[in-house]
Simulated assay, not measured.
Amino acid sequence: MRCTLFFVPPGEVAPLPVTFSQSKTIADLREGHCLLVPVSDDVEWTDNVWPKSIRELEGLISDSTGCPRFFENWVEEKSRESNKLLMVVAVRSNCCYGYLLGSPKITGYSETRVVPVFFDRVGELALDFPVPFELALSSKNLEALIKHARSFRPHSGDTQKDLHLRHALDELANTLDKYASRSQQA
C-alpha cells in the first residue's frame, strides 16, 4: 500500500489547502485522528519489540503516558466520528513506526486490528506560501518604511526569532521596493 500522510495539528490551519498545495490531488483524501506517542530513548526500539496487537500497543502507550486507560479512552472517543481514520505513531528520535486502527466501532475495542505503517522518511510540512495584501502609503512614508525595514536589527535574545524577523523585514522591504519602482514607472 502506498499513500501520503499529512499531519496537520488541530486548530492551526485547515487541512485541505495545505494538502492541496503539497500534492495537488486530494480525491482520495480522508481525514482522521493521529495519536503521536513519544518513546523514551531507554526503551529497546527494534522490530522484534514493536507492538503487534491492540493490547501490546495499549501497553506501550500506557508505559509512555503513565495512564493505563488513556489509549482505550482515546480510541473510544475518536471512533465515534464516522468515516475518520485512526492512527497511532510511536516516535523515538527520528524513527517513527505507525499503526492504522481497523474499525474499532464495529469490532469493539479489544478486537480492533492494528495494521503496521512503515515510514520511509519523516519530514515537516512547511506552510509557507505568499500572502497577497493591499497597502496604500504615501511615497514619503513608503521610503521611510523601506529604509527602516532594511536597517532594523532585531535583538530579542532569541536568535531563531530574530533571524525569522530579519527575513520577514527583508521580504517586506524587497516587495515594497518592487512596487514603489512600478508605481514610479506608471
Rank of each mutant, 00 (worst) to 15 (best):
V114T: 15
C95E: 08
R166F: 10
L101N: 05
D170I: 02
Y179G: 03
N94C: 03
K140N: 04
F119E: 02
V131D: 08
V89R: 01
L135A: 07
K140P: 00
E76I: 12
P154Y: 06
T175A: 12
S138T: 12
R150Q: 09
P116T: 11
S139W: 07
S110D: 11
P104S: 10
S79Y: 00
G123R: 04
L145C: 08
Q160S: 09
K140S: 02
E124T: 04
T107S: 15
R80Y: 01
V122W: 00
T107F: 14
L125S: 07
L169A: 01
L169R: 09
E81M: 08
H155C: 04
A90G: 03
F119S: 00
V75S: 01
Y97K: 10
L85Q: 12
V89L: 08
K140R: 10
L100D: 10
H148M: 12
S93Q: 11
V117K: 07
D170K: 06
D162G: 07
L85N: 13
E171K: 06
P104E: 06
T107C: 13
W74L: 05
S110M: 10
Y97I: 08
Y179M: 11
E171N: 12
V91F: 00
T175W: 10
C95F: 10
L127Y: 14
V114F: 14
L176V: 04
W74V: 04
Y109N: 04
H155L: 07
A126F: 05
Q160Y: 14
S103F: 11
A149F: 07
R150V: 00
K147Q: 08
N141P: 00
P132Y: 14
F152H: 13
F119H: 03
L125N: 04
K105W: 02
V117N: 02
G108D: 04
K178P: 00
K140H: 01
S103K: 13
V122M: 00
W74I: 01
L100I: 05
Y109K: 09
E143F: 06
S79V: 03
S138R: 09
A149N: 02
A168S: 15
N174M: 02
K78H: 07
G157N: 06
L176Y: 01
R80W: 00
E171V: 01
S110F: 05
F119P: 03
L135Q: 05
L137I: 06
W74Y: 15
E124H: 03
V75L: 07
M87D: 08
D120E: 13
E124S: 03
S110E: 13
S82T: 11
P154V: 11
M87L: 10
L145G: 00
F129I: 13
A90K: 02
V117T: 06
G108F: 05
P130N: 03
V88D: 04
C96A: 02
L176G: 02
T175M: 08
I106G: 00
E72F: 00
D120W: 09
E124Q: 05
